[in-house]
Nucleic acid binder design. Structure first.
Length: 595
DNA sequence: TCTGGCTGCCC
DNA sequence: ATTCTGC
DNA sequence: GCAGAATGGGCAGCCAGA
């Protein structure tokens, strides 16, 4: 398949929102691809080069892509900026400014190989090399192909489908039914590499999937939660439940195998364990993965070590949450500080300063045997038996009940510990990899009550939207609180969630009426938050959030975590917005959990 | 050698 | 992370 | 109700340029 034909399929996909139609187009596309290119084609259509857990990064986003388009087509920077503001998509901008080359000389595989090379460029001078390499690739193709290649590199194909719909298409390719679909989906969740799965199916149908199995070194799609805030409703939906504390940390899937050859990871593991000669020499395969299937081993030498020392097993896959704590007081640390562990250098020293606990809450494989089809109860029992006491890994405590009042009490206990709430599970359910179903429920406080006081903020300006929000001319807006002491508005958060399409349109109309040329005189804004359109500070908006955090970027010195608009406060003047003093006092009253 | 801009990825 | 929307 | 696509704060890493 050449790139032009490929782009034609993507264009068909873009022009419909109907799921059945998308599936059918995908099926045709897959059917027309050769076995050798089907994996590449599918990755590209999803804005990837490989499976998520081994996908190379381009390190090219908006700013770099604007440079690429300027270099390739020379439309002028102002025209580029104008088109981007208008269309909200650099692929669409490319379509507009590209010259028309015939472009049927490039195969899908040619382009794929070029992109692999592009992603591999790094080091001094790499930005210039990337700009020039991608430009020369783009000008070799027709403008529609260029449009989609731009989107692929940006990782935002905006075609209305992901891996799950591709699975549907593959199922339809083999004329399967619900059962076969469940089988493909199950395989995908145990081995989330859609390229491999497509290739096997194309090569030898459903039978080909027999070779696709759960294995150490391939992360499993983690099970996810739905959010609810009413204990009665939770019990009604689930009956008897097993509840656990929800820690404000990061999801970590641990893979450990004492017999798996380490291959190229040897040097990684040696540096991972620093001066620990005993572990350095140990030929034990250990890796950790994030919720989004990224390899995070380098962040967690302490978890890797504990997996070797504390787990009484030959091989194992665990699911759990890593939480940092203060080594002196035992208090859990804010998420911000835990994130400082997300580093490549000096992790070992950092781990001494900010130690962490790994609360294991599930076991997915033990000694080569998948356990995902056992009940949660059974899995927890097995898990409890293989964890030996130690500094890092602990079994996540649970509480079983079928009474809303008791669930509520346990929730209150989580609040006194200042945790995020509870994760509530069905004790008799299998591990539903990839599911966002109601099998696991995240029990958090109700939206408006998350902060003790509501926050009313003043709008200072807005940003042009991307993708589908381009048509509103606004994708989000910048807001501030009022500082009485200096009579200025100090920024506290951007808001881009909680508005309906209609609200976006009407709010933008209102904002355009009070548009001004430059930053309001009374506004104190870091250049980091430069808006596209400034407005007079007049409109007050009520914003919900989960908590306040310290901020180095927002001039208020604080920021909202997970902000969303609740409603416009027609009854408030800008000076009536929440004051900086109030923000400070709300922050002070927030508590931290302890270990 | 330091800093700021950009990027990717955690929540 | 939260939220909205088309199917 | 699912699947997808908008959007938030803020962390470290990388690279360019002062």
């Amino acid at each position: 398949m050449n790139i032009k034909e490929f782009a034609a399929y993507l264009d068909k996909l873009e022009n419909t929102t109907k799921r059945l139609e998308i599936t059918s187009i995908l099926k045709d596309m897959i059917s027309e691809m050769s076995t050798n290119e089907v994996d590449k084609g599918i990755y590209l259509s999803l804005g990837l080069l490989k499976a998520q857990f081994e996908n190379p990064k381009f390190n090219i986003a908006e700013k770099m892509m604007v440079r690429v388009l300027e270099f390739a087509y020379k439309p002028g920077k102002e025209r580029l900026a104008g088109l981007f503001a208008d269309k909200g998509d650099l692929g669409d901008v490319a379509l507009e400014v590209a010259g028309d080359t015939k472009g049927d000389g490039l195969s899908l595989t040619d382009v794929y190989n070029e992109l692999i090379e592009l992603a591999a460029i790094e080091g001094s001078g790499s930005q210039e090399k990337k700009v020039s390499k991608l430009s020369s690739l783009l000008i070799k193709m027709d403008k529609l192909s260029a449009k989609y290649v731009v989107r692929i590199v940006l990782g935002t194909t905006r075609l209305g489908f992901t891996e799950l719909t591709v699975i549907d298409a593959l199922n339809s390719l083999i004329q399967g039914d619900k059962l076969t679909k469940a089988k493909i989906e199950g395989k995908y969740n145990m081995h989330p590499d859609i390229g491999v799965i497509a290739k096997k199916i194309k090569d030898s149908g459903l039978k080909g999937l027999d070779e696709v199995v759960m294995e150490i070194g391939v992360p499993i799609e983690p099970q996810r939660c739905q959010r609810l805030s009413d204990p009665v409703e939770i019990i009604e939906k689930m009956g008897c439940v097993s509840a656990e504390f929800k820690f404000d940390g990061t999801r970590v899937q641990v893979h450990m195998d004492r017999n798996k050859p380490i291959k190229s990871t040897t040097s990684d593991q040696n540096s991972l364990f620093g001066d620990n000669e005993e572990l350095k020499g140990a030929s034990v395969f250990v890796k950790t993965y994030t919720r989004n299937l990224e390899d995070s081993t380098y962040q967690y030498p302490d978890i890797a070590e504990a997996a070797i020392v504390q787990l009484d097993a030959e091989s194992v896959i665990l699911d759990g949450e890593a939480v940092g704590y203060d080594k002196n007081t035992g208090d859990f640390l804010p998420f911000q500080e835990i994130m400082q562990r997300k580093r490549k250098h000096n992790v070992t020293e950092y781990a001494l300063d900010i130690p962490l606990k790994y609360f294991a809450f599930d076991i997915l494989m033990l000694n080569g045997k998948p356990l995902v089809n056992e009940t949660l109860e059974k899995r927890r029992e097995i898990l409890s038996k293989i964890i030996k006491p130690g500094k890092v890994i602990e079994l996540s405590r649970n509480f079983v009940t079928d009474k809303p009042e008791e669930l509520s009490e346990f929730f209150e206990e989580s609040k006194t510990k200042s945790l995020e709430g509870l994760v509530v599970k069905k004790p008799d359910a299998q591990y539903q990899a990839g599911a966002r179903s109601f099998a696991w429920i995240k029990y958090k406080k109700a939206d408006e009550a998350l902060l003790d006081d509501t926050i009313d903020v003043v709008i200072l300006g807005y940003y042009h939207g991307r993708g589908g929000r381009a048509r509103f001319g606004m994708g989000g807006f910048l807001t501030a609180v009022y500082d009485k002491a200096t009579d200025t508005f100090k920024t506290i958060t951007k808001v881009g969630s909680g508005l309906t399409d209609e609200q976006f349109v009407s709010l933008r109309e209102r904002l355009d009426k009070i548009k001004i040329d430059k930053k309001p005189a009374k506004a104190d804004v870091d250049k980091f938050f430069d808006v596209n359109v400034w407005v007079a500070p007049k409109i007050v908006v009520e914003v919900g959030a989960d908590e306040l955090s310290k901020s180095a970027n927002h001039t208020a010195g604080y920021a909202l975590r997970f902000p969303r608009m609740i409603k416009i406060r027609e009854d408030r003047r800008p000076e009536d917005a929440t004051s900086l003093e109030e923000i400070k006092s709300i922050y002070k009253n927030q508590k931290r959990g302890s270990y």
